[in-house]
Computed example of a mutant assay.
Amino acid sequence: MTESPNPAVIDTDTLTGEMHPIRRAVIALGSNLGERMYSLQGAVDALEDTPEVWLTGVSPVYETEPIGAPAGSKPFLNAVVTLDTTLSARTLLERAHAVEDAYGRERDVLNGPRTLDVDLIVVGDRHADDDSLRLPHPRAAERAFVLAPWNDLESDAEIPGYGTVAELLEKAGLDGVVRRDDLTLEVS
């Protein structure tokens, strides 16, 4: 059993016998429909307001061309947030989906336009490969729209089994990825 970060604190996980240590998580945000910055800022605010989640970093915003999207799809705004959490990966995923739903996310078209995309990239060293949860995110190591903003926060970070963010970004390249220094996400 993993030790609690503070053994004097009794929480729900302790009572059920499922203790969760504090883990670093990386979450990618994206939007290419509606008020894109409003949606990204809403996601940052919602994550910041989540119990047992402590935001540790918010990347600059990037504008990127859609990948594998239907013809006529508009460019995305993308960012990455880093956080510490005691939530399980599944609970964090449920929160991510709830935030997407709050911003009108529809999942009817594969790689389709979206008001908000909130993707778990890594949650500690957790590995998962089932229908509902895949960690590390299976395509993050190839996607500059995840790697570039993450590199701004933690260039020495690693995607377990793939390599460092800096190395992966060098391989992926920056084609179609533009840093938007005129757009800033706020943390309260």
Rank of each mutant, 00 (worst) to 15 (best):
M1D: 02
T2A: 04
E3S: 04
P7A: 15
V9P: 03
V9L: 14
V9C: 07
D13Y: 00
D13R: 01
L15C: 06
L15D: 01
M19S: 01
H20E: 12
H20M: 11
H20C: 10
I22W: 07
I22C: 02
V26S: 04
I27P: 08
G30V: 06
L33Y: 03
E35W: 14
Y38V: 13
S39E: 01
Q41I: 08
G42M: 04
G42P: 06
G42A: 09
L47F: 13
L47G: 09
E48K: 07
E48Y: 09
D49I: 03
T50P: 08
V53L: 06
T56C: 13
V61Y: 07
E63T: 15
T64R: 07
I67G: 04
P70F: 14
A71S: 14
K74M: 11
L77F: 15
L77Q: 02
L77T: 06
V80A: 12
V80Q: 08
V80H: 05
T82V: 11
L83C: 14
D84A: 06
D84E: 15
T85G: 04
L92D: 06
R95I: 00
G104C: 05
R105M: 06
E106H: 11
V109C: 13
V109T: 12
P113L: 09
R114I: 10
L116E: 02
D117I: 01
D117P: 09
V118S: 07
A128I: 02
A128G: 05
R134E: 09
H137R: 12
F145T: 11
A148Q: 13
P149V: 14
D152N: 13
D152I: 03
L153P: 10
G161Y: 03
G163H: 10
E167V: 01
E167L: 07
L169H: 11
D175E: 15
R179E: 14
R180V: 07
D181G: 15
T184N: 01
T184S: 02
